[in-house]
Design a protein around this nucleic acid. Structure first.
Lengths: 164, 164
DNA sequence: GAAATATTGTTCGTATCCAAACAATCTCAA
DNA sequence: TTGAGATTGTTTGGATACGAACAATATTTC
């Protein structure tokens, strides 16, 4: 993930390249670190937790959302997972092929598709999710205990500001 | 991005579903908000800044890294952009088709490929990057001025902890 | 200097990922 | 009740995404 250049080097080089522009480097640093962190954490989880189950990151998120909300409507799953409904169609097909999930037409509304976990899907989540959480603890560990609430709040505020 | 359920609802439902497990909900909240924020910001940028240029998020990042470091070696671009070299090959082909970038064999080392921006590529970045930064300022605005450094530091620490 | 080893970018196969077009279904007004 | 409009999940087409295998080139080893 990290290149051969340090972040300081990059910022100095950027400053030089952009010396004729008026820029907010602090905002830039926040955004840059946000994406680096998200990408690094995601790759870390895919390799260390998800790989042995053969699940992609998105597949896991979809499985998780379904687990929490089942029977879940696909539009809600897509929104909650942060992916388009077109993407969800493909991911659900993958999860169905793995027999972790089952699609069902809604009786009340013929347009809707309800998604449920199979017995295997539930069993997988029962072991996978605690393993996932153990890694979450590991990943967050460099942030001081008393700062974590603040960190979550700031990230939440950024999201709310965009989507509001 | 946000579903019809609030984050509080989700957490309550998760707590109920997982009541028999020992979990760190604060670590979970930090990770959850990290991905929500990254995803929301990325989508926001793709739709509001990048769409008119016909660039994807990744294409922009690659273009940006190349702009800063040109002539840039592909292995460095991939590392700096946080994508695999296989992915970079495809993205560079896209950027070359758009005539924003040029590939060149290195004279010193026949294995290396050097990447440079075309005149059009430079012109695009001259207007696109300031527009990008203006949106960055907007996105970060809900975080108090004096907290932004801390936020960047915490995210940096998480990344370093994983990759170290 | 020749052979073994390492490194680099591309290709291949497969899985995401999205916007836009689409068919099926539902809602609601007239 | 019938027809216009809205909503939902899928399909389509094209770009991204990765690991693994690959050919080309450099480096190391003896």
């Amino acid at each position: 993930m990290t290149g051969s250049h340090t972040l300081g080097e990059t910022e100095a080089r950027v400053a030089n390249r952009l010396s004729h522009m008026t820029l907010d480097f602090e905002a830039m640093a926040v955004m840059s670190n946000l994406f680096r962190a998200a990408s690094a954490v995601r790759n870390h989880f895919e390799r260390n937790v998800l790989a042995e189950s053969g699940l992609s990151w998105t597949a896991f998120v979809v499985l998780w959302v379904t687990w929490i909300w089942e029977p879940a409507e696909t539009r809600d799953i897509a929104a909650e997972a942060g992916i388009s409904k077109a993407t969800l169609t493909g991911v659900l097909s993958t999860l169905e092929k793995l027999e972790l999930v089952r699609r069902e037409r809604s009786a009340n509304d013929g347009r809707l598709v309800l998604v449920k976990l199979t017995t295997q899907g539930k069993a997988l989540m029962e072991t996978l999710f605690p393993a996932f959480n153990r890694q979450e603890i590991e990943v967050v560990s460099p942030v001081a205990d008393e700062k974590r609430g603040e960190l979550a709040d700031m990230l939440r505020a950024i999201t709310a500001n965009i989507e509001g």
